[in-house]
């Protein structure tokens, strides 16, 4: 498990990515970070938290935060219906849920399939990107989800303060 995660951040050998849709864009993240996928349920609101933090839910006894990347990065419209999906991620020993419009597929990419992202035209800061990959004419933005979730910008973890 850890070995795989390490390779994801450093060497990027051939690996599987879960692709999901935010607005009109397709993103991919390392499937090894995915704990489970579930439907959206309303979360308990957290006081004085930024709007992209939807709150916390009970994941079989664990209190887990849910964030909506659509709100954070202004992609598409933050609507919640029966098809809205939450991807539960295991990041740095914590569980975090991200709200997405839909989950599409699991894809294999080799390291050379992933090209560096251009400096412009991408919603995410390049720090959080591994690069771009294409599959059947479709462009997939490969996100370094670990970096993104644990970033100070999202402020999900306390580490920045401690």
């Amino acid at each position: 498990m850890t070995a795989v995660q390490q390779s994801s951040s450093s060497t990027m050998l051939a690996q599987e990515f879960l692709t999901f849709v935010l607005g009109d864009e397709t993103y991919g993240l390392d499937i090894m970070t995915v704990k489970e996928i579930r439907g959206y349920e309303s979360a308990t609101k957290i006081a004085n938290a930024p709007s992209y933090i939807k709150g916390v839910i009970n994941l079989r006894g664990d209190i887990v935060p849910i964030i909506d990347l659509r709100i954070k990065f202004g992609i598409g419209e933050a609507t919640y219906n029966e098809w809205t999906i939450v991807i539960m991620l295991n990041v740095k020993d914590r569980i975090v849920g991200i709200v997405v419009d839909s989950v599409s597929d699991v894809m294999n990419f080799d390291a050379e399939d992933i090209r560096p992202a251009p400096e412009f035209g991408v919603t995410f800061d390049s720090r959080y990107l591994h690069g771009l990959a294409s599959m059947d004419e479709q462009m997939i933005i490969i996100v370094d989800i670990e970096e993104l979730i644990s970033s100070d910008e999202l402020g999900l973890f306390d580490t920045a303060h401690a």
Partner: peptide, 22 residues
């Protein structure tokens, strides 16, 4: 455990209906 400290809140608990209360 999975999130961070929140001012005014000591922790959370799970209610009978499975929802989370602060």
């Amino acid at each position: 455990r999975h999130f961070r400290r929140v001012e005014g809140v000591a922790g959370a608990t799970i209610m009978g209906d499975g929802s989370v209360a602060l």
